[in-house]
């Protein structure tokens, strides 16, 4: 029996298939937790899937992969997410 997987280029599931995409970022989203109401809209609408929910249901942004598009800041109803310019 020949092992068909040997020598055949097969892509495997991997987090960060294009590297650490956080380096693409120009502006960085910063959550002000005192204004956050745990509505989780940023978590549902993060187009990069790079927002996690913590144990206490507060969102947490994965800055290794966040591309800084700003969708989370736009959908936040209490404006608790601020986009801070990273590149000088």
């Amino acid at each position: 029996m020949v092992n068909v997987q040997e020598g055949i280029p097969i892509a495997r599931p991997k987090i960060g298939s294009s590297g650490f995409t956080g380096s693409w970022r120009i502006t960085k989203p910063v959550i002000h937790y005192d204004a956050c109401t745990k509505c989780r809209l940023c978590y549902f609408y993060c187009v990069e899937n790079s927002i996690d929910l913590q144990q206490d249901l507060y969102p947490k942004i994965d800055y290794d992969f966040c591309k800084g598009c700003g969708v989370c800041a736009d959908v936040c109803p209490t404006k608790a997410i601020e986009m801070v310019r990273e590149v000088k």
């Binding site: 960060g16 650490f20 609408y45 990069e48 994965d62 591309k67």
Partner: peptide
């Protein structure tokens, strides 16, 4: 997370979230 982060989509592109959903 069924579609993993760190992919080649442009910033603001909804496709990763659409496939994930």
């Amino acid at each position: 997370m069924m579609l993993m982060r760190g992919n080649a989509a442009c910033p603001g592109c909804p496709i990763p979230r659409e496939i994930d959903a």
